[in-house]
């Protein structure tokens, strides 16, 4: 019965069944399954399958986005039930947003989704986000990484402002900075002292994982 429910939760992610995920999660909880077990065996494994199929070209972005939506719905029920101290399920915490003066968000949304799907806790601040807002939130949620998206040559400078503000506040060691967006590139990231540049959502996930890893080592 338990295995059956876990399998159903798995499937609902893989098949994008948004309308049944909540009742399945509730049923799993009612049958005394641990929230952590549901997350790891039901949701994470489901998300992994989706990710693999996307890489192989069998699944497309709509599949990924819908699976992420299903995951969000499930986590809304499950996360409050976790004992916060010893049950960190996250690969790390990321604060992400599009910089001040810029309202482009598709790419940023994709990155946020893929990061969530890969086990990161993601706080998405939306668009037109001021440097202070990024930093305040990052401190509040103990973020490992701030992700800054800019699609205009006129707004990418805010990415530099953010790095400088972090240095000024003495937070630069604690928080990694990743930048992205159409006019942004490796050279720019290096110039402004960011920790890295990612050209798409998959690269962003890879980069963020490695940054968080090196952070915990250092």
């Amino acid at each position: 019965m338990n295995k059956d429910l876990i399998h159903k939760i798995n499937l609902s992610l893989v098949e994008g069944q948004l309308d049944v995920i909540e009742e399945l999660v509730q049923a799993a909880l009612d049958s005394n399954l641990e929230p952590m077990a549901i997350i790891q065996q039901g949701l994470m494994t489901g998300m992994q399958v989706v990710g693999e199929r996307f890489q192989e070209g069998e699944y497309f972005l709509p599949h990924v986005m819908i699976a992420a939506e299903a995951m969000k719905k499930a986590m809304k029920i499950l996360e409050p039930l976790l004992l916060t101290t010893d049950q960190t399920i996250h690969s790390g915490t990321v604060v992400i947003g599009t910089v001040q003066g810029d309202i482009h968000e598709i790419g940023k949304n994709l990155v946020a989704t893929m990061l969530s799907a890969n086990g990161f806790k993601v706080v998405d601040l939306g668009v037109d986000v001021a440097v202070d807002t990024f930093i305040q939130k990052a401190q509040e949620v103990r973020a490992d990484v701030i992700g800054l998206s800019a699609l205009l040559t006129t707004t990418m400078t805010v990415q530099r402002d953010c790095v400088e503000a972090l240095i000024q506040k003495g937070l630069r060691q604690k928080i990694r900075v990743v930048v992205g967006g159409a006019p942004v590139n490796e050279e720019w990231a290096h110039l402004i002292g960011a920790d890295g540049y990612a050209e798409d959502a998959m690269a962003a996930v890879k980069l963020t994982k490695s940054l968080v890893r090196t952070k915990s080592i250092s």
């Binding site: 070209g57 972005l61 709509p62 790419g107 994709l110 798409d200």
Partner: peptide, 9 residues
């Protein structure tokens, strides 16, 4: 306008 590529975004 444009189509949206469902692999590359």
């Amino acid at each position: 306008p444009s189509s949206f590529d469902m692999r590359e975004g």
